[in-house]
Design a protein around this nucleic acid. Structure first.
Lengths: 339, 339
DNA sequence: CTGTTAGCGCTTTCAA
DNA sequence: TTGAAAGCGCTAACAG
């Protein structure tokens, strides 16, 4: 292996000079720079990142934590898309992603602990927000830089997070349904302990109230994310005495299953029942009917969380803890319009 | 920061002893071990991974390279699922994933170069296999440990790769279509430079030949992965003089788009036309019609590639370069059966 | 503008 | 069973 010393020897200068050339230090003469660079080329030198990391006490690496992979939720294109956003910003800043996909909460916790205590990462991005997450407690206690994609339920004012205004998003999409003449609107959410589900449901309820439509308990259902494709949820709905004429679904992926189920029971979307959801993943536009959905700009969610964590690692102050990515509704075919 | 020296001081022994306790070296007395461990607890000591990596000249970190993320192919749940497989094996071996999602081939190459030359990873897993991939050339030239998930087109006998027998898979699924009375079978593939597409198509052709069905050029189409949802492909098919009665699609995700398109043109699957594809992603079972598809055991693909790369990093010899994960057909609703 | 020196925190001979 | 010492490859004062 060729080290900085070899280059020093070959060029007749000191290791520190070589180091400075690597850093492109301004007070090294152009001449030596040339000479050193040539030697690096010739000998095939490349700086050892581990060695550098050790001395500068920083790795330019961020741990990115996915939700527990035991359930199938990882298959949600949401995560790939956030990752893409994070990766693109990281690339230009020369940061790296250390990915953690723990099967269980335990595994994930262990991995985070290893990364953080072993000083193997400079910061953490959490790609989800759950109630009572021990990882958050751990990070907070250690005062370790981290950002959440989504909204923390506790410590909202202390934890940096990148989120949509999901309450408003829920309200907007529900209002759109109401505008189009729907009155009996049901809500199907994913896991009930996900903050994003909670918020979207809250927005849904607000819209109903504003339109003076009663909020019925039996109209709000939860289905385990990606489990059984929303079968129970649909069956519940079909058992209702007064059947809904529209459904707000908290995630496009769930919509896919729900639509299939409805069809199985002979209900067509949007003719018999309208449906609108959130995320605008790639699928939403290629399935039939194409989904009317809230575009939450997943990629941007990734980019901004990347920006935030890097800033924090550089000890720059963030002006605000809560970074909101705007959303907007993409109108497609799953909602029956008012004539 | 509390270091190994602090523990040494606190316990009155030397840093080397502490180091040995960390490694659980057998020739340290149980008594000192206890003492040292207690001090580590009390002072909150945790080994610095970077420092260790530097001296042992290894990082226990593997670079995992996704396909260029400029196209939408990253949203294919395939990748999340392989990642999950890799992650699970890595976790138990205490390895980490350094993820690279370059937008372009260039970006990806740069990232790989950085990881490898900077000695930041011990090995590389490539999650795709393309024709003329400079990354493969680079890795080969550097003689750096790497494994491909998929099949390299060149150097098949030199490059370790974890793959399905996609030719056979293509043949099997096509044969199944033929068994059920289909004769005019079309093939819709993803990007034509992906080896997986090529293989599956090859198998498709073999099955036709064995059944003495002519292989028609105009029956084989390619659609950019996830682009336009297979619209052109379907339009091409509908333009054919003799329309197919079945389609083999090289990826479940493409199937989703193709089914939608067919429906748009008034063709129902499987009543009017049958369809079968590959991968068995979560979606395949929740969409209507549920897809008859080849289960390629994506998760296992991940696990085995993880095993392979770790073995290589430990300098253990692999018995074979080509590791095959068995596939099997999952029979669902998208194929019209012979009465 | 460049060199000398001292470490970053750990592992690992070698010696005791 | 333990300690002393060297060194992994690099950066960063400090000195000149």
């Amino acid at each position: 292996m060729v080290t900085i010393k070899d280059i020093a020897k070959a060029t007749g200068c000191s290791p520190s000079t070589v180091s400075r050339v690597i850093a492109n230090n301004s007070r090294i003469s152009e001449k030596t720079k040339q000479k050193v660079r040539k030697a690096m080329q010739d000998l095939g030198y490349h700086p050892n990142l581990t060695a550098r990391n050790l001395v500068v006490q920083s790795t330019k690496t961020i741990g990115v934590i996915m939700p527990s992979s035991a359930d199938k939720s990882l298959q949600n294109p949401f995560f790939a898309e956030v990752l893409r956003g994070i990766g693109s910003y990281f690339h230009q800043e020369q940061f790296s992603i250390l990915l953690s996909t723990g099967q269980t909460e335990q595994e994930k916790f262990k991995e985070v602990e290893r990364m953080v205590l072993g000083k193997y990462v400079d910061g953490i991005i959490l790609l989800y927000s759950r109630l009572n997450d021990p990882i958050i407690d751990f990070l907070k206690e250690k005062d370790f830089p981290f950002v959440i994609v989504g909204k923390p339920l506790e410590y909202k004012n202390e934890i940096v997070h990148v989120d949509n205004d999901n309450i408003k998003a829920g309200k907007d999409i529900t209002a759109y349904l109401i505008e189009n003449g729907h009155r009996r609107i049901s809500f199907i959410g994913g896991a009930a302990d996900l903050v994003v589900t909670i918020d979207r449901q809250k927005g849904y309820e607000m819209a109903l109230k504003e339109a003076a439509i009663p909020v019925l308990k039996e109209y709000a259902l939860h289905t385990e994310f990606l489990k059984s494709g929303g079968r129970e949820a649909v069956e519940q709905i079909l058992k209702l005495e007064v059947k809904p004429d529209a459904i707000v679904v908290s995630d496009d992926l769930i919509s896919v299953g729900v639509i299939s189920m409805l069809e199985e029971y002979g209900l067509k979307v949007p003719e018999d029942i309208s449906l609108a959801s959130f995320n605008n993943i790639y699928f939403s536009e290629i399935i039939k009917p194409a989904l009317t959905t809230v575009d939450i700009q997943i990629y941007q969610l990734g980019v901004e969380s990347a920006k935030a964590i890097i800033k924090m690692c550089m000890n720059q102050k963030l002006t605000k803890k809560r970074i909101i990515i705007p959303h907007d509704i993409v109108y497609r075919e799953s909602v029956r319009l008012k004539k």
